[in-house]
Every structure is written in structure tokens, then in C-alpha cells.
Amino acid sequence: MDTAVVVILSALTSIAILLLTSLGLAVVFGLMRIVNMAHGEFLMIGAFATTTLVRSGAMPLWMAVLSAAAFCALIGVVVEVAFIRPLHGRRLIDTLLATFGLSLVMYQIAVDIFGTASPGIDAPPGWLQLGRYSVSYYSLALPFIAVVVTLLLYLLFKSTRYGLLARAAAQDAEMASALGVEVRRVNLYTFVLGCALAGLGGALLSPVVAVSPGVGQSYIGQAFMTVVTGGPAFLLGTLSASALLGGVANVISQFSTNMWGLTGLLLVAAVLVRVLPRGLSGNWSRQL
């Protein structure tokens, strides 16, 4: 009994991590058709910002997490204005390569500032005893945070003016601009939102992983797969893809080995691309 509960809890944590590390990519890709190759570096910046703030004693973890997201949003503004906006209307590949160039630069700057072995921070203390098992509170909190973030995003896109405009712009940029939507401003908001989400993801991970300049790169592969298998409904599609891929990987790891868990994740993703080339949400009528 306690085993079943712990397996489910552990799977939920894995799903939450996958979701939190993919959402930023999904928003930018879903609404702007931009593959942000610097996504991993935004995760990394979020994580470093958090550890730095917490270690300096300036603020508690939760406040540092929010500040880290805000900091990433700020960098997002600069990046959008300097590199994304001028490429508007060019091929997808151009923004992809530009953001990759950016990721190299950001990585190296992080190496120069933090070195390759930078001190980390503790996770909030405490654990829950479930029969033979103990589960840390923090890993229990992650799924809740993921759900709250998803809900907030849903509300944002469903019921704010920005949300409506962003979705309209994604549907047809020309028509939206003819209707008077300021596509430029909406795109800026969307990109910045994506960066903030990436920063938030990295910030939330910072107490449970070893934060290093390369930390983002280990998540980007799986984030890509989640976004692809999620399909056009960038919010709920990504949520279901995270649930499927993260769940499969975790549960297989529980009963077999990590290697098979990873292999299972990849297999499921491959099969999905063949069966549903437009992703899990390819045939849904909703677009969120």
C-alpha cells in the first residue's frame, strides 16, 4: 500500500519537473513558432539566480524563485528586442540558430561568473513518513506548483486581453495585425513570458539538482520531445505529454532500471510522432 502511494508520488514529481522545464519552450514555440535553443540557458540562469539570492541571505527561497523568474523575464526583454524582433518574418531556422548562438554566449558567461563548481542551496527541510518510506516535502510541493502555474497560464490565455490577442496573433499574424493587434508588443510579451517560465522552472529545480552552467542542457532534449508530442495545444498538450512521458519514464524506472525508463520515454515519443504526427493535441478542437 505505502509502496503504491510512494510510486505515484514519485511519478507525479517526475511529471512536474518535466512540465516545469518544458512550459517556457512550449509557450514560445506554440505562440510564436520559435524554437528557443537558449531555453536551457534560461533554466540555468533561473537556477543560478535563485542559489545566489538565497546564499547571499537576501531573501527566502520562495521569494528568490519569483525574483529569478523576473530576472529571466528581464533578460528575455533584451533578447527579444535585440535578436528575435529583427528576425521577425525570416525563416524559423534563423531564430533557431540565433538563439543557439545566444545559448553559447550565455553558457560561457555563466562559466566565467560562477566557475564549474558553484555552491548550491539546501532544499526546504522536512519529509513525510509514509510507512517504510520518507518523501521530502519539497518533492511533494513540485506537482502542486506545476498545477498552479498551469492554471494561472490557462486563466491568462483564456480571460485576459493579452491572452486573446496572443492566440489570435498565433493563428494568423497578418490578419491579427490587420485587426489592429500590435503583433510586435504581443510577441514581446509572449517571449518574455516564455523566458520567465523557463527561469521559474530552473529556480524550482535549483534545490534538488547540482546547479552548473551546463545544467540546462540536460533538460532541453526532453523538453523538445515533450513539446513535439504535446502538439498545437501548447498548454494542455504539453501537460498531457509531460504526464505521459514523465509518467512512463518514472514508472518503468521504478520497476526496472533508469536506463529502461529513459528508453521507454524515447520509444513512446517515437511511436507518438508516427501515429500522431501533429502531436497529442493535433486533433483537439481546443487550441490552449
Binding site: 513535439v228 515519443a269 504526427p277
Partner: peptide, 27 residues
């Protein structure tokens, strides 16, 4: 065959091919 006969669009094609090489890396 999977991509072209499944009509994977160009944006997805970039990500699918990238994922393919990352999968090989892991494997």
C-alpha cells in the same frame, strides 16, 4: 519514411530530427 509520409511539418521536422540524434546519444 515516418516523417515525410506522416507529413511532419518543417518546424516539427527540425525538432524530430534533433530528438532523433539526442535519442541516439542516450542509447
Amino acid at each position: 519514411y515516418v516523417m515525410f509520409y506522416g507529413r511532419v511539418g518543417d518546424v516539427y521536422l527540425a525538432i524530430v530530427t534533433l530528438s532523433f540524434t539526442l535519442i541516439l546519444y542516450t542509447v
